[in-house]
Amino acid sequence: MAAYLMRRAIMLAATLLVSSFVVFAGLSVAPGNPLATLSGGRSLPPESVAVLVQRYHLDEPFFVQYATWLGNAVRGDLGMSITLRHDVSELIGSRSGTTIALILYAALIVLLAGVSLGLLAALRPGIVDSLVVMSTAVVVAVPPFVAAIVLIGIFAVNLRWLPALGNGSGLWDGIRHLTLPAFALAAASTAAVARVTRTTVRAELGREHVQTAVSRGIPYQAVVRRHALRNAAVPISTLAGMTVASMIALAAVVERAFSLNGLGSYLVTAALSKDFAVVQGISLVLVTSFVLINTLVDVVAAVLDPRIKLGRRA
């Protein structure tokens, strides 16, 4: 296990290095000159330009700029926002809570609702199974922005059960405000996890080792829990982890739709105003979380299936 974790840690560091380079390089090849953004389109005297160039290291070679930026980023310094004249790390920190809460809420829905629906369909062939299969086939094809509009239309406008916009204040109000966004974000992934749970649990129930357990007089619920669901947990957790990781990017859409003050909506704002330090900073945070979650998924799979470590399939 220790060797496996070590190998994963080295791969993680390499992936982060490459992705940080892509984040940094991506913005420098994007159209628009940082100086034009800094000056707000006005023509500046050469002295002011020189000051700006020096402050933002614009005169240095590309790789030196990258090294400086990465060195600062590792120490938690992501530079200054150009439009807000404020520390990027702090700006990100103040908005990340909403995004983290939204993704955790959505992940909880994906796991609880997805696995229960899939299990229900696997164990109840016939009408229950058909209902789950048909409804998940529809929902799995609904992107979050469509789900957002539908949910707002039904639960906020018509039924007036839940608020549609804003963050809310306090814990309970905050949860109420996050409920519709979380369901919009989780809908398609929940359907996908339900379908995979149904298929894998059913496949496991047909396996020989399940017959062994049944032949020993183990009660059926225990057979399902200890063998079918336990063994299906490997593909389920892999899919759930991947969809949660993809939510990091999709959260931007949902946050915009529900006017939530999170990282995703800030990324869109910053990109539109060419606030490149903020765009780089948020991109780096998002990419890092994505890579970390994927690594976590791999480690969880290795814990759940003891054959993975030995298989050297990383």
């Binding site: 396996r207 020989e208 080792h209 017959q211 062994t212 357990a213 049944v214 032949s215 020993r216 007089g217 183990i218 009660p219 063998h227 336990r230 063994n231 490997v234 759940l304 299936d305 003891p306 054959r307």
Partner: peptide, 21 residues
């Protein structure tokens, strides 16, 4: 289940008949 507890079965292929995880 009581009957199954009182009658034990040894299967042909232990690799398939024992839960691998």
């Amino acid at each position: 289940r009581d009957l199954r507890s009182s009658v034990s079965m040894v299967f042909q292929d232990p690799r398939a008949h024992i839960n691998p995880v």
